[in-house]
Design a protein around this nucleic acid. Structure first.
Ligand SMILES: [Mn+2]
Ligand SMILES: [Mn+2]
Ligand SMILES: [Mn+2]
Ligand SMILES: [Mn+2]
Lengths: 154, 154
DNA sequence: CGAAAAACTTAGCTAATGCTAATCTCTTTA
DNA sequence: TAAAGAGATTAGCATTAGCTAAGTTTTTCG
């Protein structure tokens, strides 16, 4: 029944072990982000390819994601079931309205995170790599802080 | 053979679609982070529990992680195979030297990210949530920038 | 046109991470 | 000290995300 030091959050420097329920919510939040992360990356990439090339082919998605075509086919099937994507066999992939919305939102967030990293002095190459992972774990509140930070620099 | 606009990276505001190989490396980097992410969180949590309570029991890990005990048992088995943890059936879990090192490194990084978020104006509650996910995608370079940012504020 | 090449799909496999239900072991307490 | 309760484990299932190998369809080109 070991119950001793709790409320580590209130201790000076007690940044570890917050209240157990809150702690669990933190991890749950991360798990939730992981569920949508890949979906967002695929949809965002498809949107970028559509904007840049006019079409999004599985080969190109595979090359950019660094995965096999079979993996892309399977993922596109999932995106289709989720109503984010419209695709016919052996044809280019397109975004539904819902997919467009997701792509737009992801793209904006990605750009803010990338610009923020550069703004605080991270090199472009590193900023790009880090942004690709960080973007999915940035809350609206933090995103807004980043946006302000960038704006204040002008 | 649609080959048209490349080197988006060099365009003004071209923050989308970098060189394909680089782009693939970005995603690969994220995938790599995801492989170690959970491991780091478990090991870090076990370290924190050992420090705070003297022992790390599966119940407590389960409660804090917000998962079932069966999930913890399985994960501890994996950590054990990885040589990060030492455990006997029905007994507390301990860290190996290697595990200690991982825990230490993770803890330090986590704290820097948390303090950085607070430093730029994110609320404590949000900073805690975001840090739990962000920490795993922060490169050494970015971490150093964050550290300097915090230090310069004193 | 008709082959060869490229693109795409399908089937079947693996690993990671979660779950529930059932069981086992240990600890507490009446 | 024996039952009850708490903690831990095991077995079996589902989902996600990747892979290879084998086939299909479409496109390119001699
Ligand atoms: Mn992105
Ligand atoms: Mn991403
Ligand atoms: Mn952590
Ligand atoms: Mn974490």
């Amino acid at each position: 029944m070991r119950r001793s030091n709790d409320d580590a959050a209130s201790e000076p420097g007690g940044d570890l072990l917050p209240d157990a329920a809150d702690h669990a919510r933190q991890y749950a939040s991360v798990r939730r982000a992981h569920e949508t992360e890949l979906i967002e990356d695929y949809v965002e990439l498809i949107g970028d390819l559509l904007a840049a090339e006019g079409e999004a082919r599985a080969v190109d998605i595979a090359r950019r994601m660094g995965v096999r075509q079979a993996t892309v086919t399977k993922m596109v099937g999932r995106l289709s079931e989720l109503g984010l994507v419209k695709s016919l066999p052996y044809r280019s992939i397109f975004l539904t309205d819902q997919g467009q919305a997701v792509a737009e939102r992801s793209r904006k967030r990605h750009v803010v995170v990338l610009q923020f990293l550069r703004a605080i002095g991270v090199s472009d190459a590193t900023a790009r790599i880090d942004a690709e992972g960080l973007e999915h774990h940035v809350s609206d509140e933090t995103l807004e802080v980043m946006r302000r930070f960038i704006a204040d620099l002008q």
